[in-house]
Simulated scan of single mutants.
Amino acid sequence: MAGKAREDEAIRAVVERLTDAFSATHSPVEVETAVARALASFTDRPVRDFVPVLVERQARTLLSGTSG
């Protein structure tokens, strides 16, 4: 369970970083939605060590592609 707590904390940090990075073009809700969408794509993956990094990359791509 400690691994889940670490992952949850890392995902919260991803949301904070992306909210700051995209504050000019996206609302916090849009950022959270992009992160949730990216995270959902890794739900069934057994190895979780790099999920936060991969989620951040995927969410950043989603947000960049829709920023205008």
Rank of each mutant, 00 (worst) to 15 (best):
M1K: 09
M1C: 05
M1N: 06
A2N: 11
A2D: 10
A2H: 10
G3M: 10
G3P: 02
K4P: 00
K4I: 10
K4E: 05
A5Q: 12
A5V: 08
R6G: 03
E7M: 15
D8G: 07
D8S: 12
E9V: 08
E9H: 12
E9A: 14
E9C: 05
E9I: 01
E9G: 14
A10Q: 07
A10F: 01
I11F: 00
R12H: 06
A13G: 10
A13P: 06
A13H: 13
V15E: 03
E16M: 08
E16Y: 05
R17K: 08
R17P: 03
L18N: 01
L18Y: 00
T19W: 03
T19H: 08
D20H: 11
D20Q: 15
D20P: 04
D20N: 13
A21Y: 03
S23Y: 08
S23K: 14
S23A: 15
A24S: 14
A24R: 11
T25V: 12
T25N: 11
S27C: 11
S27V: 03
P28C: 11
E30V: 04
E30Y: 04
E30I: 07
V31I: 06
E32I: 01
T33W: 09
T33S: 13
T33V: 07
V35W: 00
A36F: 06
A36Q: 15
R37E: 13
A38T: 01
A38D: 06
A38F: 03
A38H: 08
L39Y: 09
A40M: 07
A40N: 14
S41L: 11
S41P: 07
F42G: 06
T43G: 08
T43C: 03
D44V: 04
D44A: 12
P46V: 10
V47G: 13
V47I: 14
D49K: 15
F50T: 10
V51P: 10
V51Y: 01
P52H: 11
P52C: 13
V53T: 15
L54P: 02
L54Y: 04
L54E: 03
L54N: 06
V55T: 01
V55E: 00
V55F: 00
V55P: 02
R57D: 01
R57Q: 07
R57V: 02
Q58E: 12
Q58C: 02
Q58T: 12
A59H: 07
A59Q: 02
A59L: 05
R60H: 03
R60V: 00
R60M: 02
T61G: 15
T61P: 09
L62D: 11
L63F: 00
L63P: 12
S64C: 05
G65T: 07
T66F: 07
T66S: 15
S67A: 10
S67Y: 08
G68M: 08
